[in-house]
Amino acid sequence: MPPRTPAQNARLALLLEVAGTPKPGNVDRHRDLPDLRFDHFLAGTVGTERGLEMAAEGAAVGTAFERAVKGMAAQGGGNTQFGALLLLTPLVRAAREELAQPVVESVVEETTVADAANFYRAFEHVDVFVADPPEDMAPLDVRRGGDAVPTLEERGLTLLDVMDRSVPGDDVAREWVTGFERSFAAAQRLTDVDGTPLERAAAVFLSLLAERPDTLVAKRHGEDVARDVTEHAAELHDANALEADPDAVETFADELVERGVNPGTTADVTAAGLFIALEHGDLEV
Rank of each mutant, 00 (worst) to 15 (best):
P133R: 06
A241D: 08
P2Y: 07
P263V: 05
M137V: 15
G71H: 05
E153P: 08
D254I: 09
R11E: 08
F65L: 15
D254N: 15
P213N: 10
F123D: 00
L206A: 02
P34V: 15
T151N: 07
E250K: 10
E223C: 07
I276Y: 07
T266K: 05
E97M: 14
A277M: 07
A186T: 05
R200F: 04
L42Q: 09
P24K: 00
R67C: 12
L12N: 00
D161H: 12
R29K: 12
A248K: 11
D141Y: 08
F119W: 14
L209I: 09
R200T: 06
V103C: 14
A116Y: 03
R259S: 12
F65A: 08
T230K: 09
E17R: 02
T158A: 04
E98Y: 07
A267G: 11
E17P: 01
H30F: 14
V229A: 02
A138G: 06
D224V: 15
P263R: 06
P168Y: 12
F38N: 02
V69K: 01
F38C: 06
R182P: 02
F82N: 03
T48I: 05
A244V: 05
A233C: 14
T178K: 11
A277D: 06
R29Y: 03
Q75G: 03
A94H: 00
E175W: 01
Q81C: 07
Q188V: 13
A116E: 02
V18H: 07
E250S: 11
R11A: 04
M163K: 06
E49W: 14
G145K: 04
V107W: 01
L99M: 10
A148G: 04
T270E: 10
A234Q: 03
G77C: 09
V130E: 05
G78S: 06
V142W: 00
S207Q: 15
V167C: 07
H30C: 11
D164R: 15
E124Q: 11
R11H: 10
A10F: 05
F205M: 07
M72W: 06
P213I: 09
E124L: 04
L36W: 13
D32V: 01
F252S: 06
G145T: 13
L14T: 07
E17M: 06
V285G: 08
D170M: 05
A203W: 01
A116F: 11
P134M: 10
A186H: 02
E231W: 10
P34D: 12
G78A: 06
E255I: 09
E124R: 05
A59C: 09
E66W: 07
R189I: 11
V104R: 03
W176E: 00
P90T: 02
R189E: 13
V108C: 05
A202M: 04
D147R: 14
L278R: 02
F184T: 03
G222E: 11
T5P: 06
P6M: 09
E181F: 08
G195K: 08
E105D: 09
L99V: 11
E255H: 15
V204A: 01
M137S: 13
G25K: 02
E97I: 13
A100M: 10
E255G: 12
L206H: 04
V18P: 00
M163H: 11
A7D: 12
A10R: 00
A244N: 05
A55I: 02
G281A: 13
N118P: 09
V217G: 00
N118V: 10
